[in-house]
Amino acid sequence: MKVAIASTGNTLDSNIDSSFGRCAWFIIIDTESGGMEFIPNTNRDMEEHVGRVAVELVSLRNVSMIVSGDFGQKIKPMLDSMHIQMVVIKDSQKKISDIVELLNNRRK
């Protein structure tokens, strides 16, 4: 299973971003192989449709779950119809490494 996380930076010490479309980096984690991919969000300064572009970007990598601080009104129905699970973490101090740890513990 592949999981995408919206992050404020490109290290494991970065925090989770409070928005999905305008986050700084996407981190794609493969829970089976443990592989990680860091993708910079180059579209974050666009005025409109950042959410849709972001969904297209991560759906190309076949993720089945997205973790973020929040999701916009436009992309919630999009992700629902694509059967991608959304996980909202309101605690903005949560680090990426914490989430990775949680996911890895669940696998065992």
Binding site: L79, Q85, K90, L102
Partner: peptide
């Protein structure tokens, strides 16, 4: 347990555990 909110896109499957912490 981990204070997260999650959606459940596959309605036909029952929800058993938190997708993040289990």
């Amino acid at each position: 347990a981990c204070e997260c909110y999650f959606s459940h896109p596959h309605k036909q499957l029952p929800i058993e555990e938190c997708p993040l912490c289990g």
